[in-house]
């Protein structure tokens, strides 16, 4: 009975205050469209940045004369270096097969395999790559193990990759924070405005002896409804955009690099949740100052 009453009150308020309700609804819808576009973009950026970072590794080339025993010893030594996540061994034959795949004609001309056995040392954190490399190189040109021929030299590349990806990550995070702040302020302000128009009503309710929550519930429910409808409108717009623009393009993008982004269903859940949450919370909290009668 109570819930029914509150629901009826919320619907009545929306019907009788159509203009402010519409303003709040539009604010939520616009905000959610922007957020909905931004989440996959941030994710794609982060994904690409992480993809690049994860390719950072240190390659250790063995002497061609290295024996199986030496190789096992070197593997143990490499794993002993702090910050190493794992060590992947690639034999001469595997390396040859791998390389010849990319250019079969060129490799077919070779009579013997020029490639050495290789250890790919993958750091736990890409930022450690350079420290690991200097540990393998040792001091004064004395390598970690005599069986090691050489260590890959990508110092400057690794540095650049690390710096750029860090910058991209920070920028994206900053933008996301700003966007969320802007949307909360926009929605909050719109709700305040619509409540301000009804502050007299709240005052009267208090004088009649309504408790704070008796007054607040219809406003919160109205917030939930406005948030839900606004998010739904945003989702329809996003869905149309996805089907009309993104899906045809996706075929072309996959040639370059298909960024792993959020599944659409999750996006739907997050947007509706956020829309309802912000709107209901905004209504409930903004009402507080009008309740002090």
């Amino acid at each position: 009975m109570k819930l029914g009453f509150f629901l009826k009150e919320a619907f009545r308020a929306m019907r009788r205050n159509a203009a402010p309700s519409f303003a709040a609804l539009a604010a939520i819808a616009v905000t959610m469209v922007v957020v909905g576009v931004f989440i996959p973009i941030v994710q794609a950026t982060q994904g690409s940045a992480n993809g690049v970072r994860n390719q950072v590794e240190v390659d250790v080339y063995m002497k061609t004369s290295a024996t199986r025993a030496e190789e096992n010893r070197v593997r143990g030594e490499l794993l002993g270096i702090s910050g190493v996540k794992r060590v992947v061994f690639e034999s001469k034959a595997q390396a040859f097969a791998q390389e010849s795949k990319s250019d079969p004609a060129a490799y077919a001309l070779l009579s013997s395999n020029p490639l050495p056995d290789t250890f790919h040392v993958i750091p736990a954190n890409p930022a450690n790559a350079l420290a690991i490399r200097s540990a393998i190189l040792g001091h004064h040109g004395k390598l970690l193990d005599p069986a090691i021929q050489n260590v890959s030299n990508h110092t400057s590349d690794t540095k650049k990759v690390l710096e750029v990806t860090k910058l991209v990550t920070i920028t994206a995070a900053l933008l996301a924070v700003l966007l969320i702040l802007a949307s909360v302020l926009l929605v909050g302000n719109t709700i305040r405005l619509s409540l301000y128009a009804r502050r007299r009503e709240v005052e009267v309710m208090k004088l009649v002896g309504a408790t704070d929550w008796f007054i607040r519930w219809p406003f919160v429910i109205e917030g939930v409804l406005v948030g839900a409808i606004g998010s739904l409108i945003a989702l329809i717009i996003l869905g149309v955009m996805k089907v009309a623009l993104l899906d045809p393009l996706a075929g072309n993008w996959s040639l370059l690099h298909a960024p792993q982004t959020i599944p659409f269903l999750w996006l739907v859940v997050i947007l509706i949740g956020a829309g309802i949450g912000v709107s209901a919370l905004g209504s409930g909290l903004s009402l507080r100052r009008f309740l002090r009668v």
Binding site: R200, V204, M205, K206, V208, G209, A210, T211
Partner: peptide
């Protein structure tokens, strides 16, 4: 609020909803 329910209040400006 519970206290106010025991008091009827009438105003110059009516204060109707």
């Amino acid at each position: 609020p519970y206290y106010r329910r025991n008091i009827g209040m009438v105003f110059q400006d009516f204060k109707l909803l």
